[in-house]
Design a protein around this nucleic acid. Sequence first.
DNA 1: CATCCCATGTAAAAAGTTACATGATTTG
DNA 2: CAAATCATGTAACTTTTTACATGGGATG
Lengths: 180, 180
Amino acid sequence: MSLRYGLLSMIAKDPQTGYQMFQNFQEQFLYFWNSNSSQVYKELVKMEGDQLISFEYIYEKGKPVKKLYHITPKGEKELIDWVIEFESKAAKIKDEFLLRAYAFHMISTGEAIALLYKMKAREEGVLYETSRWNEERFKQIPEKIKLGEFVTAEFGIRYSNMYIDWCKWAIELLESYQES
Amino acid sequence: MSLRYGLLSMIAKDPQTGYQMFQNFQEQFLYFWNSNSSQVYKELVKMEGDQLISFEYIYEKGKPVKKLYHITPKGEKELIDWVIEFESKAAKIKDEFLLRAYAFHMISTGEAIALLYKMKAREEGVLYETSRWNEERFKQIPEKIKLGEFVTAEFGIRYSNMYIDWCKWAIELLESYQES
DNA sequence: CATCCCATGTAAAAAGTTACATGATTTG
DNA sequence: CAAATCATGTAACTTTTTACATGGGATG
């Protein structure tokens, strides 16, 4: 049920297409939600049926027809109710790298260090991308409409930095094991 | 397919029951994987069929019969192959709180601050629990068999601290909005 | 004496993934 | 001129969640 509220939050900010929302999951939402295009399109049809959103066709010459979704008053109400009703539930993380790290006792220290370097490089790439997007998005002090975007973007930066620092710490630890 | 490798990593360390593995997801695995009992029991049956694990019944007076799973040589080989084969894929996070935070523009600053305090309290509770578990688990310098446990536990501590710090930062930011 | 914990499972529903189809435009 | 991007979807499949069933022991 949460996917629909994620989509609603996006549409509440700006009317947009399913494709744009799908892309948002890979950019702004990277650090706290994810989805794929087929799931997004399916859910949007359902949400339209529930009168939470409505759409209009956009025709532009030389471009495919697209459906621009708007939030309805009913959608706004349901979104607000959902945001406030929050009862703290643990986040669900699926991190294939850390799952592998848990099994480090099965491989050699050298191999584990190599994996940590690979992961560190990946996260540095993510941090670079995120920073670049944020520069574009927050050229000046954020207005109220961008508040949620701003605070969650900051979370992403902190998450990536924490991850990179942890990799460095783990590499040092394993290198000390290797020497002794 | 990753669930089975998570289970394999657990069994590779210590032979254990499905119930214990289910509990591990709520303790040591909290920060990087999750599952529930029905999924665990189903997957264990499949893994036994694939000869990755085997089990023996344990009868103890005054206790229900339990199935103690062991890893097989085939299971060990597949686990090692899987750990090393890592090609960096982004972690998948589903965080209901941050999803709500993204929609902070829909509610009042006061309500948003209240939600942040609630979330901060939750994460402080998680950090407390995690620290308590870690104290028990790592009374001395970890041996090789506990290396994966140790590094992923440190990740959890860092994650929770980062989350709490971010909450504090966001509360301060929103409070400054409220004053102006 | 009700509720929680241990311990294993079944069944059904919901959510998420992967592969494919279509077709135009833009980029390297 | 091949590949990527824009744009929307369908179908089949896998994974995950939720609810239920069972039953003894421990805890408050």
